[in-house]
Design a protein around this nucleic acid. Structure first.
Lengths: 194, 194
DNA sequence: AAAATAACATACCGATCAGTATGTTATTTT
DNA sequence: AAAATAACATACTGATCGGTATGTTATTTT
């Protein structure tokens, strides 16, 4: 039973927490950072989301769900699978290149920072990547079905290799490599789709 | 001029700091962690290495130099370039799979944690990866020279794509993916060498 | 041997950390 | 309207953070 009505939008403040954790990671984000960015007080955070780790987990789950559906939409929105993949990878590059900060991928950041020390996040991040690789796989199978891609391709293995390259690309973009490096990587990687 | 003689081996304690930063990252490693692992006191750390960030930088530089020469040795030690790359990638997998903790690559960890927020580490991590890609490139060129690889290959672009895949592989191993995922990725990635 | 000096050990600094106790205010239930 | 209750705001907790002041000990230089 609810007495006084909540003055903040739970979804909005969680999104604010997500942005912050995404930018700075778990350890480097303090409760003070969170209260000021979320616009609510410390006790409100604890009563609504639990402790810092639980809030982080909620933020990450929000992120992964949004990212998976965004990715599926992008890959399904183009009749040509090759074009869809190229556009997708180039969007990633554009996203990280534009703007002051390259936040990378929240899930990948978490895989690096927390997965080795916290089994919950080891599982959560692994399963998200596996899920993404299935989305890749479905797109590739669509390309094989339509005749755009060679029938002999191992769709699953190819999808997994592309996910691995996507992770590598996302990570190295944080060091702001030269444009040519990225372009070369993209050309060679996408040449796997044939 | 030196009065009292130093009681610790500078190289050894720096190596201890490297191990710790490698395992836990910058933020999650405290000065207390460092003193107990390095076996020296706080003032000794500060007088010898400077503050926490400077110590971290020294540790990272030690790591990158060791890693680059280790990598060059592994790639040069085999007359077959294809075999050399396969062994190299499989060594990475074995390294991360065995043992309780998958530390990943210290430089990649730093790229994720610090590069977006600290230009010094953006540059340091980028240049290390570029250096590694040149080592890859030289091995590929050797393979072209010997006739083992196709003459038309763009050695540089290929090397850069392989580095990107290596980064992706190193990162995803932190989430302990299924063996089949890794094997598939490896097969497809190494198929680029032909 | 005396003076100088640098590495040592101990104990401390203010600041900040994650998390909570306490009291007030607004809304619902009775 | 009274009682109950949950969200609010403020202020606090002990612990730990990175970094340093201070005094002692060992070695070198004079």
């Amino acid at each position: 039973m609810m007495a006084r009505t909540r003055e903040f939008d739970e979804e909005k403040v969680l999104d604010a927490a997500m942005q912050l954790f995404w930018e700075k990671g778990y350890e480097a984000t303090s409760l003070s950072d969170l209260t000021s960015r979320m616009g609510i007080t410390r006790p409100s955070i604890y009563s609504t989301f639990g402790d810092k780790k639980e809030l982080f987990e909620a933020a990450l789950r929000t992120y992964t769900m949004a990212r998976a559906s965004e990715m599926r939409a992008k890959l399904q929105g183009n009749p040509s699978v090759k074009e869809a993949f190229r556009n997708f990878f180039e969007d990633v590059v554009a996203e990280e290149t534009s703007g002051e900060l390259s936040r990378g991928c929240f899930c990948i950041n978490t895989m690096v920072e927390l997965a080795p020390h916290d089994e919950k996040f080891e599982i959560l991040t692994r399963e998200h990547q596996m899920y993404l690789s299935v989305i890749f796989q479905e797109a590739i199978e669509r390309g094989i079905q339509s005749g755009e891609l060679k029938t002999v391709s191992d769709a699953k293995a190819l999808a997994q290799a592309l996910i691995t390259s996507l992770i590598g690309l996302t990570v190295i973009l944080k060091s702001r490599p030269q444009r040519a490096f990225v372009d070369n990587t993209l050309e060679v990687t996408l040449s796997l789709l044939k």
